[in-house]
Amino acid sequence: MNYYLRRTIRIPATILGVATLTFGLIRLLPGGPFTQLRIQLRRRGMDAQEINARIEALQNIRPEKSLPEQYLDYLIGVVQLDLGQSISLNKPVIEVIGQALPWTVFIVVVSTLLMFVLGVLLGSLQAYWEGTTFDSVGSGLSILFMSIPYYIYAVAFLVVLAFSWGVFPTSAAADRSIEAGFTVAYAVSVLHHAALPIISFTIGGVGSTALSMRGNSIQVLGREFVEVARLRGLSDQRIATRYVAMNAILPMYTGLLLLVGFRLGGTVVLEEIFTYPGLGFYLIEGVNANDYPLMMGCFMVITIALVLAVYFADMTYGLIDPRISVGDADEY
């Protein structure tokens, strides 16, 4: 079958798999929120029908129905973006996610791009000056930075810059006193609040990007077409961008998109440290409150984001690198 078609069909299939897993997990977990809730409600003297109605509203499942019917209802709910009702926040899950997701996406996209740009710059400079002090110091620092987990930076920044020196705020995504909107004051406030999370989430990545960029560039610099370009009298700047950088960055492109997906799920601890109201923050909230619908909703969103990122990378790589004919090309 056609590669693009196959690849596109695989997306709903993956999401279906994840939805099925979440559905099954809820049922498998002993002492899940519904058992607890059922006991609580029964103690209050509610009758069984009322209890079922409540639970049904909470999770868009009708407990009295058979398992396949419940499964079907749940799936229909997911398709209609109805992920149930958050128990602890008493709001529809989709609404909570709708508010949290933009913040997380903002943090992740900005920090990943920053990481990529800085890493590529640093790596190519190191490759050009291969063997110099700059190169060895750069490589050493890169290794050091990438081996320290991001939450260490986060805690350190929070303690020093936010609590001791008070240069940055300690929580929230924006100043509550400023009204949300496209105003300069609001944008400044947003950046001010996001600065520390973004920086802590970027530093380690810069190191690893720089190292792989350095390696790729050194390889490309040794290729014959760079030598030929030099003999053809092209300017150093053109060789550095169109010849070396272009060919060194290409293999890193798929990795970049995958990274965006993975880092979406990696913000959990980060947002908890900075009390930043993103997806990860609510996920932890959900875990702490035994709020299963919220947890499952967050899982679903993170998974879907990852699946879409990989899909996008697969689809576009062929357009970006002319050598890749997408799919299973073979020579004869």
Binding site: V228, L231, R232, L234, R242, Y243, N247, R323
Partner: peptide
């Protein structure tokens, strides 16, 4: 001017042949 053995390795794989000509002329 010089012609190398492996033509495959003498062209930038991410650029069209035409660009190789125009950039040489411009330089």
């Amino acid at each position: 001017a010089m012609v190398f053995q492996g033509a495959m390795h003498s062209f930038n794989p991410t650029m069209k042949i035409k660009t190789h000509f125009t950039e040489t002329l411009q330089s």
